[in-house]
């Protein structure tokens, strides 16, 4: 009644098909999404700090690649060993005034949303501009007019 060999053959066929489908789905998915992706996004342009601050805590190339590693190391040292140096997230905001133009623009373009600023303070550009206006310290704002800063978020 049941031909065992036939059933075996069918089972092998189904298994092979399933394997092919499992391999093909991701490839097909990437091809299709690339087809409908449209033109590539331009590289995000980051706001440069003021001329007064010529050097970051490390070289630019290093910071571009490994800033998160540096921040993580500092975090580990401060939180777990109480070894506080003058390099911290508050120091970043002295030169890189705008979080919108400095952190978020790049992170958003690569779909990365670190939750640092849920707890750590990094002022919104408008808030910072207001502070600068009050204190009269315009040098920090990259030598540009203060009114430009709030527009950064509107992109």
């Amino acid at each position: 009644m049941f031909d065992l060999n036939k059933i075996k053959e069918k089972a092998y066929l189904i298994a092979a098909l399933a394997a092919v489908v499992v391999i093909l789905i991701p490839i097909g998915y990437s091809i299709v999404t690339n087809l409908f992706a449209g033109p590539p996004q331009p590289r995000p342009f980051l706001e440069m700090p003021d001329e007064k601050y010529k050097e970051c805590v490390r070289e630019t190339e290093f910071m571009r690649q490994h800033h998160w590693e540096l921040l993580r190391t500092i975090r580990e040292e401060v939180v777990r060993y109480g070894k506080r140096t003058d390099i911290n997230i508050n120091k970043c905001r002295e030169c890189h005034v705008s979080r919108e133009g400095f952190c978020n623009r790049c992170h958003n373009s690569v779909n990365l949303y670190p939750d640092c600023f849920g707890c750590h303070y990094y002022p919104e550009p408008s808030e910072m501009a207001e502070k600068m206006r009050k204190s009269g310290d315009k040098a920090i704002l990259f030598g540009q007019s203060i009114e430009r800063l709030p527009d950064l978020s509107g992109e």
Binding site: H66, L70, T73, E76, G82
Partner: peptide
Amino acid sequence: ASNIDGLIVENL
């Protein structure tokens, strides 16, 4: 390996 120099945690 992390290539961050000068930030090795000392035994405090």
